[in-house]
Structure formats: structure tokens, C-alpha cells
Design a protein around this nucleic acid. Structure first.
Lengths: 144, 144
DNA sequence: GAATTTAGTAAATTATTATTTACTAAATTC
DNA sequence: GAATTTAGTAAATAATAATTTACTAAATTC
């Protein structure tokens, strides 16, 4: 086994998930593309994030964040509270409404996957579960 | 094993690839976000695609495509030729310049992955390769 | 083969995003 | 503790993206 062989498989994996990702990026309901990306980013991080983290994570200048977040706040998608460790910064979290808006998209991805699963027989489904589990475990380990 | 267990693992996989996907969506050099998405979409599809396919795939109205594609064409990223099977439609392909612009991003993802791999021992790397291979094989089978 | 649908273009208007410069106040550095 | 860096805000301008209406010409339908 070489490093390049594993990496090749990883690179191949990305297009296989492309359609699912496209769904996440699509704008839902009344939110713009960028607003969605922000919600998605916060949702994905599980923990509260600062404005700077969002700004850097999405490669959007912090100057733009002010207005974007203000609107998301006004519309009830996020909360914004002072960071206790650093009074200069703020911590952004999703409200229930914000979470729901994201979860809807995941539900669709889930359903679409379940639907496609019927193309595998039950042994293959079992194999897929095991392999996915392993991949998830090891990718998480790599992130630390 | 239940369907929901496999699906859960799949859903869990998506956040594990989130960072790699973020990189693909980031605007490179002098292209806007949407222009990038278009190149990415064409690149990912391997085969030539029609304007309609891009429009539907990215959920961007076809009216917008005209200008977007014109600019990408003028800048030498894509070619546009009449579809022989349907004279109403056009077929979009990437030029070498267009391909290169996308490949650069993949190279970075690749390098970043190789770097993180060092956090796994050699047995784990072997396991990861096998598991990724299986996942890729089965996900592809599901798409047919 | 007339009527309808489909793929794409055109143009105008509005809404978002991006970019630049300048500013506060808290945190760090020396 | 003065000087500098950092997180975020403010406001103006330019560039893109989104939306709407209207139009061609090829393909389908009946």
C-alpha cells in the first residue's frame, strides 16, 4: 500500500458525494446563497462559532458578515452573544428555526439515499454500512 | 442491519468531507463563485453537458447562464458547440485552461489529505484504503 | 402540418456580494 | 502602561446574481 493509493480513493470519494453536497448548497426558501452557507457552516460546526471563524471558514470578508448576520438575526435564524473569553468577539448559534431550516435539507438527502439503497442487495448494504463506519472512524481520527 | 443504520453512516460521512468540499466551492483567482460552480459542475460530469443540464444541476435560471457562459467563453475556460442530436441546444466543455483551474483545487485537497494521513499508523492507512475502495464501489453501483 | 413544447437568447430592474477605507474597543506585546 | 494587534462595525461604491417578461428557432405532439 502506498500513500498515493489511499489518497486516490479519497479523491474519488468526493465526486460520489457531489450530489448530496449540491443539495446542501442550494438556497432554501427565502434565504440567499450566502446566508445559507453561513447557517450550514454554523450547523456543521456543532459548537458555537465566532464571526471571525465563519468569515475565515467561508472566505467571506468580515465586513460583509456584519450585514449578513444582522439579517439572519432579525429573521430569527441565529443568536449572537458576547464571547465570555474575549469581549471583543461574538458567538453565533442557531435558533430552533435556524436548525430546522438546515435539517430539512439533510432529511431530503437521507430520503434520497434510502431510495437509492434499493439498488444494492442486502449483503451489499451490510458491506456498505461496515465500510462507511470504518471510513467515518478513521477520517475523524485524522482530523485531530 | 437496518436501512436506517447504513443511512446514518452516510449522513455522518458528509460532514467529514465538508472541508474538502468547501475548498472546491471557494472562488479561485479571478472567477466569481458562480463561475466556479459552473466549471466545477462541468469538470465533475466528465462528459460534455448542455446549458440546460448546468442550469438545472446548479439551480440557476437558464437566463442567467447566457451571460455567465459568455464570459467563461470569452476568457477561454470553456468551449460551446452545437449539439448534433438537438440543434436547439449547445454542448459545453472545458478547455485546457478550464480543466487546469479546477485541477489546482483538487491538488490542494489531495495534498492536505496526504498531510493528515500521517496521523494514522500504517495499518490504519491500509484499512482506510480498503474501506474507501468499498464505499466508492458501492456508491457508484447505487447511482446506476 | 398546425399547435405546442423546449433550449436558449435578450434586456431591463432589483437584490446581493465584493471591495475599500475608516473607525471603535478589547486584548497582547514590549 | 504605551504601542500594536485583533474582532468587529460602518458606510460607500462597484460588480455580480436573481427575477421578470418577451423573443427565436428547432423539436414534438396530435
Amino acid at each position: 500500500m502506498t500513500i498515493s493509493q489511499v489518497s486516490k480513493e479519497y479523491i474519488e470519494l468526493i465526486p460520489n458525494l457531489f450530489k448530496s453536497f449540491q443539495r446542501l448548497n442550494q438556497k432554501s426558501s427565502n434565504l440567499t446563497h450566502l446566508q445559507n452557507q453561513i447557517l450550514e457552516f454554523v450547523f456543521m460546526n456543532h459548537n458555537p462559532v465566532t464571526i471571525k471563524q465563519i468569515s475565515e471558514g467561508l472566505n467571506v470578508p468580515k465586513q460583509q458578515m456584519t450585514d449578513l448576520l444582522k439579517r439572519l438575526f432579525d429573521w430569527g435564524y441565529i443568536t449572537k452573544s458576547q464571547n465570555k473569553n474575549d469581549k471583543r468577539s461574538f458567538v453565533i448559534e442557531l435558533t430552533e428555526k435556524g436548525k430546522t431550516s438546515q435539517q430539512e435539507k439533510w432529511t431530503k438527502i437521507y430520503q434520497s439515499f434510502v431510495n437509492d439503497l434499493s439498488k444494492l442487495d442486502s449483503e451489499e448494504q451490510q458491506d456498505l454500512q461496515y465500510a462507511l463506519h470504518k471510513v467515518n472512524y478513521l477520517l475523524k481520527k485524522m482530523e485531530d
